[in-house]
Design a protein around this nucleic acid. Structure first.
Lengths: 154, 154
DNA sequence: ATGCAACCTCAAGTCAGGTTGAGATCAAGC
DNA sequence: GCTTGATCTCAACCTGACTTGAGGTTGCAT
């Protein structure tokens, strides 16, 4: 039996519901770190359960792996993060969430205008405004989303 | 010069801001159809501008290509869609948008509970409830999202 | 000492939503 | 008739977030 406070990758997978391969992947992306046993097997701490939970939650919010990695650097290094540390991060998330809700509400309001006119045209429709596209999620055609506005009217 | 009411793929790209390759891709996915010139070049109708606008808007709402294709089948076949047709589709979108906003608001409320406790733990945290995961967007670990709930408590 | 599940690494595959490139053909102006 | 830019098809590549598989090692119970 392993000492009470270290977990194998399988233990961690069982506790978080993640797959073993996903955890290994997160390690390669720098989201978690593991010590190694004498035989080079990964050994995790109980605090990593919380770290992985955070990753799952953040993904639901639409954060990319890199975004999450950035958030996680706000946690203390060396010391095991406590409630106050996690609370600080959660508060940042709340802001993010509020922003997303606000963006969707703006979109909805514009859609309401469109329902009235049935337009969905490029010239007339307030919904189809390239200046706001960047704010919303979704892969979308990269060419359009990243380069200059093609239809700056004039 | 081409007759006034047909557009080459380049014309359509210029009018919508989409790339030519994206339009061709949408055609292969069945989102739009094109007639062909004598020399097998694509020829579109003006109504296709609106169709592509709809695709762009729907993508902002997080619909996949297949979702959008499904929406578009609601448009009349053979006849050029009018305002009433587009209005019917927009109304469906409004519903979708409302649902997404509501889901995010629920998440936010739960996050508020979490900020209070700073927990983010699998057992205690209401946020981390696998039963709700499916409703939110994001790729996420497929294994977890698609198979049985790993942590049905008991 | 041995058996076997769990673990290791590394390469390749998957899916969505396109982009990029090669090599060939079309269309329009001069 | 020629040139030049737009289009054509088809195959290969890209990113993100993983999964899958091959082939080899570890670790724990018996």
């Amino acid at each position: 039996m392993r000492p009470d406070d270290v977990l194998s990758i399988g233990d961690l997978a069982a506790r978080t519901g993640l797959s073993v391969s996903a955890i290994r992947y997160y390690e390669t992306r720098g989201l978690i770190e593991a010590r190694r046993s004498a035989g080079r097997q990964r050994r995790f701490l109980r605090a990593d359960i919380r770290r992985l939970s955070f990753i799952l939650i953040a993904q639901q919010f639409g954060l990319s792996i890199d975004d999450i990695a950035a958030e996680l650097t706000k946690l203390p290094h060396g010391r095991t993060p406590g409630q106050a540390d996690w609370r600080r991060i959660s508060t940042g998330m709340r802001q993010l969430l509020d922003d997303r809700i606000a963006a969707l509400e703006r979109t909805r309001d514009r859609l309401d205008g469109c329902i009235g006119c049935g337009c969905l045209s490029l010239e007339g429709c307030a919904l189809y405004n390239p200046r706001d596209r960047a704010g919303l999620r979704g892969t979308g055609p990269r060419y359009v989303l990243s380069s200059d506005e093609p239809d700056s009217d004039g």
